[in-house]
Write a protein that binds this DNA or RNA. Sequence first.
DNA 1: TAAGGGTTGAGATAAAATTAACAATATGTG
DNA 2: CACATATTGTTAATTTTATCTCAACCCTTA
Lengths: 214, 214
Amino acid sequence: MLKTLRVPEATVTRLSIYSRFLEKLDKNGVVSVSSGEIADGVGVSPAQVRKDLAYFGEFGTRGVGYNVKDLMRYTLKILGLDRHWNLVLVGAGNLGYALCTYRGFNERGFKIVAVFDNDLTKIGKKINELEVLPLEKMPGVIKEHGVRIGILATPTRAAQDVADFMIKNGIEAILNFAPLPLNLPDVIEVRNVDLSVKLEILTFNLGFKSAQNV
Amino acid sequence: MLKTLRVPEATVTRLSIYSRFLEKLDKNGVVSVSSGEIADGVGVSPAQVRKDLAYFGEFGTRGVGYNVKDLMRYTLKILGLDRHWNLVLVGAGNLGYALCTYRGFNERGFKIVAVFDNDLTKIGKKINELEVLPLEKMPGVIKEHGVRIGILATPTRAAQDVADFMIKNGIEAILNFAPLPLNLPDVIEVRNVDLSVKLEILTFNLGFKSAQNV
DNA sequence: TAAGGGTTGAGATAAAATTAACAATATGTG
DNA sequence: CACATATTGTTAATTTTATCTCAACCCTTA
């Protein structure tokens, strides 16, 4: 069914944005939408929207546009969000705490089922209804909850070891918040969320702007 | 001096990665490095490293490579990190708290000088040595500390209004953690850190992988 | 039913980014 | 010094991504 050959990652990223925008439209009772309206809503071109969708099929009606609810469901399905995903998180520091309590994950069907840390002062503490567990409990949790994705929110120095440990226990994909390039087998999907990189894009652009004015 | 015409954003992103890698090499006492070693270290191709650097000048020596300390300084300078940047942060929730205490910002020369929130239960509380202030105090803080960049870590519903308020008070660039597209003047630099988008890239890829196997 | 306006999907075109190739240059060795 | 090896910077080729264009199609209205 998926006629996907190779989908640019930028397309997947935008699809995620489209789908959230469509959810908002749907919540507001909007029934039909055009590529131009989606484009305006999320800040891309209408052609881009249509091209992105074209990787996966034909979802609209010529002369009419797209049915909001249908397109929302299609996009969610394409992203693999027509189901729930159980996650594990390692690192019960401030960032780990924030991620555990982040509403945005739940809204998209993600559930953190366990939090791990090796810091004895953190083990046993509660984050919402979750108790912080020692790393050694991870294998059991992964099996029990069918976890395929792990979130890495440890200090930088621990990140590589923890990532290796996750993989040894069957984790297939890692969302990495530690600011270092992980060295992992190619079959493992890794995406980095580097909190300061985007800040540095801002400072680069501000600096460039100043230079232009001189 | 900068022979910059138009630099791809991906190049700036990688530059940020390179510069952190170079800092690590420097800390480890490494004096000289080749584009191939940088490439291996951060997971890109050697040609990519050289091309990226070529946007900004000639920093290496043919047949030899790059001086680590020099290249580190050049990359930091290009990114605008040869100075300190004062930031303001709005939203004293769990994410705001985590960002305030995030070491990675400090390490790169960023300093959050004030935290704002309009939630009366949060105003007055302390995050490290910073007191959470009401939004109305922002104009003064921005002027006093020469703040040009704001971090937005509010709930989604408040994000647009807060962004408008920041801009009205002179903020030129925003790092937005709220999962919605902000509608702002073109002169304002905005970058979004969407915590769940990258998770959705992972689920997309996991789903796609399964599909391939069928 | 015919005409006009709107919108998609897809192929053609253009632009941008990445990779490859190689001349130029440095170092080390006999 | 001559030669072999290493590595950059730059140009060209390739690949990838985005934009443009327009036929096909839907809907409304007369």
